[in-house]
């Protein structure tokens, strides 16, 4: 029986693959159906995943095994329930309490994380000596990192109008950003093409058995 159900699963996957690809021709009922099923399944998957990965191990399991020892967990539980009151206009204000804790905590977490990894670490990594190597391409590359980073940051400085001579570093920053966006675009294209190849492989190998 599992073999038959496996075949049914492959046919289901093939149907959904064609239904989504049919959008390349034009918007049609098959695409609309597959799109809505995708939304429904993703939302359901997210809910079940959160229950099993976060709520059960962190809350329900602890309360069920040692209720008196984990009484403090009733606070986030009640705050979580208060969060749901946002759906009832009359009691909407109650959701502000849990929301403020979530927002305050996540603001502090992101402040510390970005301060350490994205500000201090990145500035420190830019403080390099480009002439410590004898390889010309590396010297050019390291100079590019220093100039590109400084000019790029300068481009994002909006407090003062950039005109005249002050416009030059901003312009250099834009050139570096464009090269980077191009490289990122190239990488995205490659990633999407590999996904497309994956789907074609599924159709030709798993579904039709044309290739081995």
């Amino acid at each position: 029986m599992p073999e038959i159900m496996n075949t049914v699963g492959i046919w289901l996957g093939a149907f959904f693959t064609f239904a989504i690809f049919s959008f390349l021709y034009k918007d049609n009922p098959f695409y609309k159906l597959a799109e809505q099923i995708f939304v429904g399944l993703s939302a359901g998957y997210g809910l079940i995943y959160i229950i099993y990965a976060a709520l059960i191990p962190n809350l329900f399991h602890k309360l069920a095994t040692d209720f008196s020892g984990n009484l403090i967990l009733l606070i986030p539980f009640v705050l979580g329930l208060m969060m749901i009151t946002r759906m009832v206009p009359k009691f909407q204000w109650m959701s502000r309490y849990p929301l403020s804790i979530v927002i305050g905590t996540s603001a502090a977490i992101s402040l510390l994380r970005f301060l350490k990894s994205d500000l201090i670490a990145q500035v420190a990594a830019t403080m390099i000596n480009p002439f410590e190597t004898k390889v010309p391409s590396e010297i050019v590359g390291k100079l590019m990192i220093i100039i590109g980073t400084i000019c790029g940051v300068y481009f994002f400085y909006f407090s003062k109008k950039q005109e005249g001579i002050a416009k030059i570093p901003s312009k250099i920053g834009v050139y570096f950003l464009m090269v980077s966006f191009g490289a990122t675009f190239g990488y995205t294209v490659m990633a999407r093409i590999s996904l497309l190849i994956g789907r074609l492989e599924f159709l030709l190998k798993d579904w039709l058995h044309i290739i081995k």
């Binding site: 590359g141 220093i146 590109g148 790029g152 570096f176």
Partner: peptide, 28 residues
């Protein structure tokens, strides 16, 4: 990927982190 891209990504990260730090402080 190693040099111009790193430079630009670093500029974006530094600028974005300054913005995030500022908005996080405003919230707190």
């Amino acid at each position: 990927m190693e040099y111009p891209n790193t430079a630009a990504q670093r500029a974006i990260l530094i600028s974005a982190s300054l913005g995030i730090i500022g908005s996080s402080l405003r919230i707190i």
